[in-house]
Design a protein around this nucleic acid. Structure first.
Lengths: 349, 349
DNA sequence: ATGAAAGCGCTAACAG
DNA sequence: CTGTTAGCGCTTTCAT
């Protein structure tokens, strides 16, 4: 495992080490002839840049960190792919490590990334009270971009979707169908997007003068699949069960579908379901699921773009990018069993 | 962004730089008193190991690479999580980058990883002819572990599942139900696991003396979702369509389900489906899917374990670990419409 | 345009 | 047990 260094390349090419380096990395100035000689020598020797040495010398590596809260959620793996595509084209390597919604794990990961001299970090913050590791990042001058989830009080760029608007659209769709007893199966409220979806839910209900039954609103840590299922089951097993459910993310949506099946509830005849976040499976199910779709690819690309801009020295105050969602009506929503509740909604489409 | 070095810690603690390093990293020997002094100083200054410098000096970083062929496939994101869990507990950081089934991308990623002085690489090889970058890895002494997919002729450890046995079990299940016209919706045959699944298919059919209609065997690059759907659709739209289909991975399974729906075929009444690889959605669908389940968590852990052993100096010849699969019968398989084909299968359970 | 020299922050002999 | 010393491979002045 003898490792070829620039020194050996220089030797073979008959130039100094610094000239070889200049030729290989294209900075400073070298004559075309020398440059050719050097790259030939490098080729011949099988030279490979030691990016660790480069990083040490430059004080920073061409690494960017991506810390999704749950890489097993297709939402984040798709975001990740788009971030990777964009930053790799700029010569960065993306280090991906999932916090699995554990803030201690997130803290450890970020510590590691900093040790590896990453140039910037994109994170979907895990729920938890102590965000000091994120605050410190900001102070240290390492660009931080929040994705999907805001953290109030943290001065960092954030790229997210219009959670409030999305939730409003979902609920209004349900209301216009005649539903009144609508459940919200939501993620942990310490996750900002979950609080926004709750806000959208309440806003829509209030706007149309529909009373909210607070016992129909539940919050669970959706990354523990069992939780979501149990919560959904309990909700739907009640004698006064809702006629419709709005699920806060794709995992919860699936939990709701599963619980409905297990309880023998037909969708959409007995229960309408709208899920936040579209996903592959939504169209494989029968009926296909009505969802609030998020522009996932754009989310990743925007975050990458923003990070790249910061890395490029852009120093404006932090910005918040909020991407629009869209309601995709498929087969999981219909009027409630006894559609006798339609009065008083003239304001709906 | 002033960065605190060991030198400054040593200064504050009143010891030499090397003593400080010894105390901080726990090698060599230091008195308890000195050690305490040093770590207090480090704490006070907010010292953070510069793992880049460490890596440069040691000639290798505490990095391990993981190169799945498609991180968006839940199979690989789950494998990845398990690999990460295991190696992180040994102090390694896992760099994840998906090749997206593109061998050029895989080559580039591996090149990058090597530049970053990773200590070892775990890869699920993308299909393609030129595997020179993997061969060179072996020669350079960097441990390589293949996961999920073997590469004939490549001397590297491999951790996979019993694809042949799994496929045989799937087909025998279908045969025992009375199916004779069985389709195989398979992945690209340049992917070794796909050839093994094909082999299992043929073995089972031959073992029970059932003629194979080769036009019922299709191979597509499953990572392009549209391909799988189109292939499944074409297969099921034929007048002499099969009564059952065995799908080579979870993406293809879903494609088959979708195509069946779109063609108005009821599962399992008109068409039985068995999928290779269990996944979240298999139980959310109605009927739930009969599948060949793979021990995904173990797969990841075994690969990590093997890598760790190699890193520890274990020098035996490459091993091949093949983990058993299991048939999980759920609701997507039943006897074919006209169950008049059951004779001559006395050998089946 | 090129070369010489000085480190980036750390580890690892080697003395003492 | 601790200090001194010499680099790891690279970039970057500063001369020439």
């Amino acid at each position: 495992m003898t490792t070829i260094t620039i020194r050996e390349v220089a030797l073979l090419a008959g130039v100094s080490q610094s000239t070889a380096a200049r030729a290989l990395n294209g900075y400073g100035s070298v004559s075309a002839k020398t440059s050719l000689k050097v790259s030939q020598a490098a080729q011949q020797l099988g030279y490979r840049t030691n990016s660790i040495a480069q990083a040490l010398r430059r004080g920073q590596a061409q690494f960017l960190g991506f810390v999704p809260s749950d890489l097993q959620n297709p939402f984040f793996s798709t975001v990740g792919r788009n971030v990777a595509d964009r930053v790799e084209s700029e010569g960065y390597t993306l280090l991906i490590a999932s916090s699995d919604e554990e803030i201690d794990r997130e803290r450890r990961i970020i510590e590691n990334l900093r040790s590896s001299l990453v140039s910037g970090i994109i994170v979907a913050p895990a729920p938890g009270a102590d965000r000091s590791h994120l605050l410190k990042l900001g102070e240290s001058g390492i660009p931080l971009t929040l994705i999907d989830r805001m953290v109030p009080g943290l001065a960092a760029d954030v790229v997210k979707t219009e959670n409030v608007g999305g939730a409003v659209a979902a609920i209004e769709h349900l209301l216009s169908l005649g539903h009144r007893r609508i459940a919200l199966l939501n993620d942990d409220l310490r996750i900002y997007s979950a609080t926004e979806r709750l806000e959208g839910f309440r806003t829509a209900m209030a706007r149309h003068g529909v009373m909210v039954d607070d016992t129909l609103i539940v919050s669970v840590r959706s990354s523990y699949r069992e939780n979501g299922y149990q919560a959904a089951y309990d909700l739907l097993a009640r004698p006064d069960r809702p006629t419709a459910a709005f699920a806060g993310d794709n995992i919860l949506t699936l939990s709701a579908v599963r619980a409905a099946h297990d309880l023998g509830l037909r969708i959409p005849d007995d229960l309408s379901i709208v899920g936040f976040d579209d996903f592959d499976l939504a169209t494989a199910l029968q009926p296909a699921l009505t969802v609030i779709a998020q522009p996932i690819a754009e989310l990743g690309k925007s975050a990458a773009e923003l990070m790249l801009k910061r890395l490029d020295g852009w120093a404006e105050p932090p910005v918040e990018v909020s991407l629009p969602t869209s309601l995709i009506i498929r087969g999981s929503t219909a009027s409630p069993p006894r559609a006798d509740t339609l009065q008083g909604l003239s304001s709906l489409p």
